[in-house]
């Protein structure tokens, strides 16, 4: 198993590259925009899906974010990095769409049933984990079930660090909180998981 599977590649050189990309897109370079879309599309949908719990809504979220970027490209200001900008925008839009959807439906049942089917999906796909023992697979699934129970910012902090390779600083930019708060969330999250798992019967 890889100890640090995610390598943080947002060094300063990468950021300069980001500013160049943004300049291109600001000037209407469709090819640069297309490249950006292809680069982030799948990752962003997966991230959005952890918020919306609906693939369709996650897809719409990412569509909306890119549509807005293109529409307002001339005013696009980058403050940190493209990655941070996109994840921040996706989170905001996902929460937006989720609110709208809930308000629109007002059918709690519908939403509930989707959440349930989302959780069920976490339990399938044994074939993906050929390199892990059965115990590890069960623990892994339990870890992410427990993450689902956490408050939104804690959940997203853990998700972004462990599955999207974000540094604590990047997470603090995405969520608009201090780096120390992010560290606190991560520490709390891992303690919580450990407490739960060790109190449960994992043999």
């Amino acid at each position: 198993m890889l100890l640090f599977a995610h390598i943080d590649n947002t060094n300063n050189g990468g950021k300069e590259d980001d500013f160049l990309k943004v300049r291109k897109i600001r000037s209407g370079d469709k090819a640069a925009f297309e490249k950006l879309f292809f680069e982030y599309h799948n990752k962003l949908i997966r991230f959005a899906n952890t918020i919306t719990k609906s693939k369709e809504l996650a897809r719409d979220t990412v569509q909306d974010v890119f549509l807005k970027i293109w529409r307002n490209r001339e005013d696009w200001e980058l403050h940190y990095s493209i990655k941070v900008y996109l994840y921040q925008a996706v989170r905001n839009q996902a929460l937006n769409l989720l609110e709208k959807k809930k308000a629109l439906l007002r059918l709690k049942k519908n939403y509930q049933s989707e959440v349930e089917s989302h959780n069920r999906e976490l339990k399938q796909d044994e074939t993906l984990y050929g390199n892990l023992t059965e115990l590890e697979i069960r623990q892994l699934k339990r870890i992410w079930e427990l993450v689902e129970e956490m408050p939104e910012r804690r959940r997203i902090s853990f998700e972004l660090n462990r599955r999207h390779g974000f540094s604590y600083e990047e997470i603090s930019k995405v969520l608009g909180i201090s780096k120390k708060t992010v560290e606190n969330h991560i520490g709390q999250a891992i303690k919580y998981i450990r407490e739960k798992i060790s109190s449960e019967d994992f043999k």
């Binding site: 198993m1 890889l2 100890l3 599977a5 995610h6 297309e34 879309f37 292809f38 599309h41 799948n42 949908i45 997966r46 899906n49 952890t50 693939k55 897809r59 990412v62 569509q63 890119f66 549509l67 999906e121 976490l122 339990k123 399938q124 796909d125 993906l128 984990y129 892990l132 590890e136 623990q139 892994l140 699934k141 870890i143 992410w144 853990f158 462990r162 599955r163 891992i190 303690k191 998981i193 450990r194 798992i197 060790s198």
Partner: peptide
């Protein structure tokens, strides 16, 4: 040791690593 184990195990989660049709979504966009 427990904490490290959880830390190292957690990124292995692949159940939601589904691939979405980027060409189709680009066309829709």
């Amino acid at each position: 040791e427990d904490l490290k184990k959880i830390w190292e195990l957690s990124p292995e989660f692949k159940s939601m690593d589904e691939n979405f049709d980027v060409e189709l979504d680009w066309a829709v966009l």
